[in-house]
């Protein structure tokens, strides 16, 4: 038979664990819907025929265009091609008004990091999926989750709070960069990435 004191102790312990592992991770992040539901699946592969670099290109000076500007979308969608409601939003709200789409960037790096897609894609020949996972074949855009304290996208920490058993693309903390550099025998000096 457990003593009441011990019982109360264990109750407290259990309470903390539940709050810490279930409530806290949920409450820590603020969720935002993307302005438009974009389907990578429709645009790429057999259906769309586009490759990643058709929209996310590396410029000749080695700078990465990131998420393409509206111009890129408008080059095909100057008027609606299909019938989807999302495309209608694209055309009516953005293309015809010439407003840039306020995308929320999942993989956005902090401003103190200089990440060169050119050296990772062209020199190291990494696949896009290495860091971005199956994002390129997703059918819809998941909500963007913003850390209420740090302001970072949840993708930086990764989907699990414990960071155990993660895929290579689940998380983009400095540790993740360093581990990959270590595996590939690339220098891990500060100035390699920080600006």
């Amino acid at each position: 038979m457990l003593k009441p004191g011990l019982l109360r102790f264990l109750a407290g312990l259990f309470f903390s664990l539940v709050i810490g592992w279930y409530v806290f991770p949920y409450a820590l992040y603020e969720k935002f819907e993307q302005p438009i539901q974009f389907s990578h699946k429709v645009h790429t592969g057999e259906t769309g025929g586009l490759s990643c670099t058709d929209c996310h290109e590396i410029k000749s000076d080695g700078r990465f265009s990131g998420i393409p500007a509206l111009e890129k979308c408008a080059s095909c969608h100057s008027s609606a091609i299909g019938t989807s409601s999302q495309e209608k939003i694209l055309v009516d709200e953005y293309v015809s008004k010439n407003r840039e789409i306020p995308w929320l960037i999942y993989a956005k790096q902090p401003q103190n990091v200089y990440f060169s897609h050119a050296s990772h894609v062209k020199l190291a020949a990494l696949e896009c999926t290495e860091c971005h996972g199956s994002h390129g074949s997703s059918d819809s855009l998941r909500p963007f989750q913003r850390n209420r304290i740090s302001g970072y996208s949840r993708d930086i920490w990764g989907s699990t709070m414990s960071r155990i058993n993660r895929a290579s693309w689940d998380g983009a903390k400095m540790d993740d960069c360093e581990n990959c550099h270590d595996r590939r025998h690339v220098a891990n000096t500060c100035l390699k990435c920080h600006k």
């Binding site: 590396i58 000749s60 000076d61 401003q111 200089y114 060169s116 050119a118 050296s119 062209k122």
Partner: peptide, 27 residues
């Protein structure tokens, strides 16, 4: 990057330019 109060900074031979030059070379 911009810095905030309470930290130390100094010349780094315009390292941003080196990173830009490296990115261009990589491309």
């Amino acid at each position: 990057s911009t810095r905030m109060r309470g930290v130390v900074e100094k010349c780094n031979f315009c390292h941003g330019r080196l990173q830009a030059a490296r990115a261009k070379a990589a491309a």
